[in-house]
């Protein structure tokens, strides 16, 4: 877990910086239209990067929160409950994020 947290960190440093730069300095957020988003998301590499970005960020963030709570002395039953709530929330976020990403790219399944 500790190692995964570092690996995702390395990835996120690059992608988060790129994400901010792309969507606030290259394209201004205020000028965003669905067409532009779709154009970007239809590039396979960009699409893959964004999905990976979502998964890595969710893991890194939720794992960070979980560790912070453990360091506050969370244990026993409460810890098990918190763990599964966080896992479900993460999975929910990732599933929803991928649905959104597919809608943006114009891919429809079912």
């Amino acid at each position: 877990m500790w190692f995964l947290q570092r690996v995702t960190a390395v990835f996120l440093i690059g992608v988060l910086a790129f994400h901010f730069f792309q969507l606030h300095f290259v394209e201004h957020a205020a000028d965003i239209e669905f067409a532009g988003t779709q154009a970007r998301m239809q590039q396979p590499f960009y699409f893959a990067t964004m999905v990976l970005f979502l998964v890595a960020a969710t893991f890194h963030g939720v794992n960070g929160v979980y560790n912070a709570l453990i360091n506050q002395g969370l244990d026993g039953r409460a810890r098990t409950v918190v763990k599964w709530v966080l896992v479900l929330a993460s999975l929910g976020l990732i599933v929803q994020g991928i649905r959104v990403a597919m809608a943006m790219a114009g891919v429809h399944i079912g």
Binding site: T37, L54, L93, Q96, G97, R99, V100, A103, M104
Partner: peptide
């Protein structure tokens, strides 16, 4: 922010 960002983008659905 991440947990707010995705719902906002969900309007694309």
């Amino acid at each position: 922010y991440l947990f707010v960002h995705i719902p906002v983008l969900s309007t694309a659905l």
